[in-house]
Nucleic acid binder design. Structure first.
Length: 275
DNA sequence: CTGAAGACCTGCCTGC
DNA sequence: TGCAGGCAGGTCTTCA
């Protein structure tokens, strides 16, 4: 389900419901998702102190009075969903993990395609884990600027779309927001990254920040099966400029939107507005 | 090193 | 109505 904005919306939703609660029990209903799952029962009697986000990962910080702090790391893959439901409510289809808290609420993880994954790490050194060690900058931070992007693009022949979707370069930009950002910046998705002027890369940096921030503001736009943490369907209608609009008219110039395949993924663009 | 392609899974939509 | 085929938000591994 998620690109960065959706993960951020899930983060704030879960934080509003669960911070300060103590884990009474925690268990998985299968041994693995994408990777083997950790022993969630180790979190019993821990309290949830904070929920952070790095890239598309959620970081749940737990503490206890007599044991060292732990950080539960979670990636939602393509179809992962967290719901907070009453403890008594029965499990849903594809529910793989549940955490019960001391106030009677219950956090459930569903994931039809099981591309999600989780790990239980020490709070002191989670960032040294292989999942995080080589990640690029956060797109909404000041550290993501034209100099940073230029340093990765210089001399590269790979298409710019692949470059901005590469988590070593900048994190959190998925297929949908890559397409939308490139439209806003007027850059063709297949253009070689090393052959784009600094001025246009600068516009791209701004477009990525604007697009992601707007999507977070809208409550996480994109996904047809996006569901809010209270379990209610939470599909926020959102009009994209190019994503999913093959054959329809460009909102800016009227020319028909085209679709191509890059690195096995669909790319949408306006042949008149993007070069 | 770079870049492309395949793999992991299930659900849903399209077309015959 | 049934069923094969294609496609889907992400990431990692393999191969040329």
């Amino acid at each position: 389900m998620p690109e960065l904005p959706e993960v951020e919306v899930v983060r704030t939703g879960l934080a509003s419901l669960l911070l300060g609660k103590k884990v009474v029990s925690a268990k998985a209903f299968r041994a693995d998702l994408r990777y083997p799952l950790p022993d969630f029962s180790l979190l019993t009697a821990y309290k949830l102190q904070a929920i952070r986000r790095r890239s598309k990962y959620l970081l749940f910080d737990f503490y206890s009075d007599d044991q060292s702090p732990k950080t539960l790391v979670w990636h939602l893959g393509m179809t992962g969903q967290f719901h907070v439901l009453p403890k008594a409510m029965s499990g849903e289809k594809h529910e793989h993990v549940r955490f019960d808290f001391d106030d009677g609420s219950s956090l459930r993880y569903r994931d039809a395609r099981r591309f999600g994954f989780a790990g239980l790490l020490s709070t002191a050194d989670w960032s040294q884990h292989a999942w995080f060690k080589h990640l690029g900058v956060e797109p909404l931070r000041d550290a993501f600027d034209v100099a940073e992007l230029l340093s990765h693009c210089r001399g590269r022949k790979a298409p710019i779309k692949n470059m901005i979707m590469d988590a070593h370069v900048v994190v959190g930009v998925g297929n949908i927001y890559a397409a939308e950002s490139l439209f806003l910046a007027g850059i063709h998705p297949a253009r070689a990254a090393g052959r784009i002027s600094q001025k246009r890369l600068s516009m791209l940096v701004t477009a990525i920040k604007t697009t992601l921030a707007a999507a977070i503001q809208a409550g996480g736009s994109s996904i047809s099966d996006f569901v809010q943490v209270d379990g209610k369907p939470g599909y926020f209608a959102h009009t994209f400029h190019v994503y999913g609009r093959e054959g329809e008219s460009c909102m800016r110039c009227g020319v028909k939107i085209r679709k191509i395949t890059q690195a096995g993924r669909s790319s949408f663009y306006c042949p008149s507005c993007q070069h």
